[in-house]
């Protein structure tokens, strides 16, 4: 077995190898492996109870792994917990705040226990307050702040010691739409300077903020890849959606005969205007042929577009497939 030297991490900021976590007889996470590159934003996607929080708690050193090895910046979370924790910022699902404290007091306290040098505490508190837009409430008690502010204070807390790795558990849960957009912007700005792992069960979040996705279900990794990869990998065909006006039966019949089209399915009809979904051979763009067929017949063509599988569909496919196998 290769000895792991501190700081030796081959460009992988986080390395999870064959992680299994059991609570008594319950298996929360089973044989999970993945890496996160330096500066990358990795999305951790899965339904509630899939094992996302457990995995994150092992990475942050809150829970010890039952089996397997987890290292942060080359430091094993079990063997060098202090070194690993020094390099990790963590925002749990519920911001770990003290409601009686003011924002400044709280951030000052966190800075001290996160080993920020004494002389820099004040400066760091100001910097992260600015970054997370909580400067205007810094003198207020945290317990009296809105959920959105509390979440931002939680994020400021995770950033206070400028950690290399940021672990964010459902960072947008419970926020209103405006706050969600702001939080996503903030996370995107953090990429590059920090390596980020964020968990979510909300799919658009992943395509909006993450470069790579790990899909987890029932404690197991079911897919890893970029959001685009996942879309292509899973889909055996290309989908084209046509909106045109003309006689329905004839149109369907005609489109069926276009080369490369395998399946024609009417999806929607509004009077004469039809929306039809076509499944074409993979890697083949049938749009010009479809357009010509419609126009040559003298029908009115309104729209023609390709669609990938939405992340929702992929997610459902992955998680229900797994469910089918398990049963």
């Amino acid at each position: 077995m290769r000895a792991s030297l501190p700081g030796d991490h081959h460009g992988h900021m986080i390395q999870v190898e064959h992680l299994t976590k059991r609570y008594g007889p319950t298996v929360a996470v089973s044989d999970v492996s993945f890496e996160v590159q330096k500066g990358e934003v990795l999305g951790f996607l899965g339904p509630n109870g899939a094992g996302k929080t457990t995995t994150m708690r092992v990475i942050t050193g809150y829970l010890p792994p039952t089996e397997g090895k987890v290292s942060v910046a080359g430091f094993d979370v079990l063997e060098s917990p202090i070194e690993a924790k020094r390099r990790t910022g963590y925002l749990p699902e519920n911001p770990p705040v003290y409601p009686d404290m003011t924002v400044s007091e709280y951030l000052g306290f966190v800075a001290r226990i996160k080993a920020v040098p004494r002389a820099e505490v004040k400066k760091r508190v100001e910097e992260v307050s600015e970054k997370c837009a909580v400067t205007d409430v810094r003198g207020r008690q945290i317990g009296k702040l809105s959920k959105g502010y509390r979440q931002r204070v939680g994020l400021a807390q995770a950033l206070i010691h400028n950690p290399e790795v940021l672990v964010l558990d459902e960072p947008t849960a419970g926020l209103d739409p405006k706050q969600i957009i702001e939080t996503r912007e903030l996370i995107k700005n953090l990429a590059g300077q920090h390596t980020v792992v964020l968990s979510t069960h909300i799919l658009p979040e992943v395509s909006k903020t993450c470069q790579r996705v790990v899909v987890i279900n029932r404690g197991q990794v079911v897919a890893v890849g970029t959001p685009d990869d996942l879309t292509h990998h899973l889909q055996g065909y290309e989908t084209v959606v046509v909106t045109a006006e003309g006689p329905a039966a004839e149109m369907i019949d005609k489109l069926q005969r276009v080369e490369g089209v395998n399946l024609v399915e009417p999806r929607d009809a509004a009077g004469e205007r039809l929306t039809i979904e076509l499944h074409a051979e993979r890697g083949k763009d049938v749009r010009p042929e479809v357009a010509r067929a419609v126009v040559e017949a003298g029908w009115k063509l309104y729209e023609i577009k390709t669609t990938g599988l939405s992340l929702e569909e992929i997610f459902l496919q992955l998680t229900t497939k797994d469910l089918g196998e398990a049963n």
Partner: peptide, 14 residues
């Protein structure tokens, strides 16, 4: 109860 124990136990303190 409040979950702040997670902050303490994930900080670089023993």
């Amino acid at each position: 109860r409040s979950g702040s124990i997670e902050l303490l136990l994930t900080s670089p303190v023993t």
